[in-house]
Design a protein around this nucleic acid. Structure first.
Length: 606
RNA sequence: GGAGGCGUGGUGUAGCUGGCCUAACAUACGUGCCUGUCACGCACGAGAGCGUGGGUUCGAAUCCCAUCGCCUCCGCCA
């Protein structure tokens, strides 16, 4: 590239953003700075679409009237950085471009300076992505030039500002907490940071500021929030990144309704500020138990019906083996009615059955109500009363297909819950532009870890149990009792996505110790790991509770984005690497030596 | 950790039941022409040996094995 065609700004000052030159500017001199989106060279006449984050404006130059700028324009190529000084002209009738915000005008260039040249980009900087995501991630700074991504980053910014404005107006203080902290063995895997000064010891990158924010309450901060990065070393999903951002909130002297009220106000404010959409709190509340019963999920999508029904009573006298044994073993028979699917082919039924098995069912029974007939692989086992009862219980009518799973409760509702989502999506039953917020409450305090067979905190070990269940908070509680302890925990769910999760915390040392003991933690262990918290509780800890939003996830929903990578500036891939910086990367042996780290021989090195 | 999908000029795709493929189309790119374009148009040109490594075969982009990368799902995510 000939460097001599590049000039300096030399005092030239931008007067307008490209997308903001308007009809009202006609006749005035403007100075624009931006990137060449496209050049259209018609010989003695050149058009350049100049782009910045606000949009495009057409710059025009011709050999006869503006020879100086015309000469420069001929050397211009895509993605060159230009400064353009010129006059805003109204376009002649019939020459406007209605697709462009600035389509009614154009800028006649008196002077064009090339501030920098550019290689041909590896992919088009157009609105639709087109290129493979691998390539786009490698050249993320070019991908971020695209309007849709810039729009998402702007939405992220506006969301941040709305959150800060609202919470500040409600008396919350934004205070930072350490990123480098102590590893907490529960929950997600930690990212570890070796200590140079104290070799052999490690910090962990914070999975959340949980303990710090509780200590703020002990400190009398009363109301705290933070927009904060959190780190969890777990496998990624379209809506999960290893480093992500939370809106972390905690308040003193608060019970459930206090937290929910603040959150509902925040959500209403953010949706209005960012999307101009009115959300009407209070949000419906559903217990965990009810959510599982009706939707087979603790984050139900309530934008459509097709709820799960208990049809155990219908089949209580059934002779059909699958129903019989499920019921006799204390299990249940559950069903959903899929509208208009009675005509499903044998192959479609087969596919559904496969899905059901994938989700953990032993099989799937279907009953089709079609043309006054009843079609089912277990037709001969069904009595007329059962057929009528099934239709009655599920609300199935002519043309519907009823899916039945007989199993233990969890499997039955989970399987049907997943099929419900898959089918609703496939059948186009999910209305767009709906924001169905709801609270899920009264979660179980503990859940059993399938791998270790041990009981663990469902949320985290600082969650307060229900008062009525405190009698079961004993180290010698039976499994049945442990499973029944309810937690003062709540999730904010929208359209089937968990947006926020929180709880009323334990604020007394004795109860906290009991819960640690319930989790099988010895006193010594509890003291070693959480001694500072237990100590703090002895110095006047106020009752408190809070919540944390998945900020990126929220922006993803606000932006209508498909995945988190569309709203995070520099995201990681599914294997947690950054294709642009090529992180993670090996480090110099000296660095490791300094940290007292020796790599095991068998670690994979490329 | 497991399953599936994808990987072909700069980009997006076609080819993939083996030979008509020293790979086609579009677009981008280069050169030239063009005064009202806005996915400008027209003409000409250059550009890949098919992710990587093995194997089968007379012959592989096409079949097999392994491996790498990306995406999605399950497990995992207090």
């Amino acid at each position: 590239m000939a460097r001599e065609i590049v000039s300096d700004m030399d005092g030239l000052r931008r007067t307008h953003y490209c997308g903001e030159v308007a009809l009202s500017d006609v006749g005035s001199q403007v100075v624009l700075m931006g990137w060449v989106n496209r050049k259209r060279d018609l010989g003695e006449l050149v058009f350049i679409d100049l782009r910045d984050r606000t949009g495009l404006v057409q710059v025009v130059t011709e050999s006869k009237s503006t020879p100086a700028s015309f000469e420069v324009a001929q050397n211009v190529k895509s993605e060159y950085v230009l400064a353009v000084r010129g006059t805003v002209k109204k376009r002649a009738p019939g020459m406007e471009n209605p697709d462009l915000k600035t389509g009614a005008i154009e800028v006649q260039a008196d002077e064009i300076r090339i501030l920098n040249t550019a290689k041909t980009p590896p992919f088009y900087i157009w609105d639709d992505a087109g290129a493979d995501e691998t390539l786009r991630l490698k050249y993320r700074y070019l991908d971020l030039r695209r309007a849709p991504l810039q729009r998402n980053l702007e939405i992220y910014h506006r969301t941040s500002m709305a959150v800060r404005n609202y919470l500040s107006s409600r008396g919350f203080w934004e205070i930072q907490t350490p990123m480098m902290t102590r590893s907490t063995p529960e929950g997600a895997r930690d990212y570890l940071v070796p200590s140079r000064i104290d070799k052999g010891k490690f910090y962990a990158l914070a999975q959340s500021p949980q303990l710090f924010k509780q200590l703020f309450m002990v400190a009398g901060i009363d109301r705290y929030f933070q927009i904060v990065k959190c780190f969890r070393d777990e496998d990624l999903r379209y809506d999960r990144q290893p480093e992500f951002t939370q809106i972390d909130i905690e308040m003193s002297f608060a019970e459930e309704e206090d937290v929910w009220g603040e959150v509902e106000g925040l959500v209403k404010y953010v949706w209005k500020e960012v999307l101009g959409v009115d959300i009407e709190p209070p949000f419906p509340r559903l217990t965990y138990q009810e959510a599982m019963e009706r939707f087979g999920s603790d984050k139900p999508d309530t934008r459509f019906g097709m709820e799960i029904k208990d049809v155990t009573p219908v089949f209580s006298g059934s002779s059909f083996g699958v129903f019989r044994s499920a019921i006799d073993q204390g299990g249940t028979v559950r069903a959903i009615a899929v509208p208009g699917m009675a005509g499903a082919s044998r192959q479609e039924i087969e596919r559904l059955t496969e899905r059901a098995k994938l989700h953990g069912a032993k099989g799937l029974i279907t009953v089709a109500y079609l043309g006054g007939e009843v079609k089912s692989q277990i037709r001969k086992y069904l009595t007329d009363e059962e057929i009528a009862g099934l239709a009655q219980a599920t609300g199935a009518s002519e043309g519907d297909l009823v899916l039945i799973v007989a199993s233990d409760f969890d499997t039955a509702v989970t399987v049907l819950g997943r099929l419900r989502l898959e089918l609703a999506s496939k059948l186009g039953m999910i209305p767009k532009d709906r924001y169905n917020f709801l609270w899920i409450t009264a979660f179980p305090l503990l859940k059993i870890n399938e791998e270790t067979g041990r009981w663990e905190a469902a949320h985290h070990p600082f969650t307060s149990p229900f008062k009525d269940d405190l009698d079961k908070v004993r180290p010698d509680a039976t499994d049945e009792e442990k499973g029944k302890i309810r937690a003062r925990m709540y999730d904010l769910v929208m359209n089937g996505v968990e947006l926020a999760s929180g709880s009323i915390r334990i604020h007394r040392r004795d109860l906290q110790e009991k819960v640690f003991a319930l989790l099988g933690m010895s006193q010594e262990e509890a003291r070693r790991r959480f001694g500072f918290l237990l100590d703090a509780f002895e110095y006047g800890a106020p009752p408190h509770g809070g919540i944390a939003f998945g900020m990126d996830r929220m922006v993803m929903l606000l932006a209508g984005a498909e995945n988190l990578r569309e709203v995070i500036a520099f995201p990681k891939t599914a294997s947690a690497s950054c294709l642009m910086t090529e992180a993670p990367a090996e480090v110099e042996p000296e660095r490791l030596a300094e940290l007292g780290i020796i790599l095991a021989k068998d670690v994979k090195r490329s």
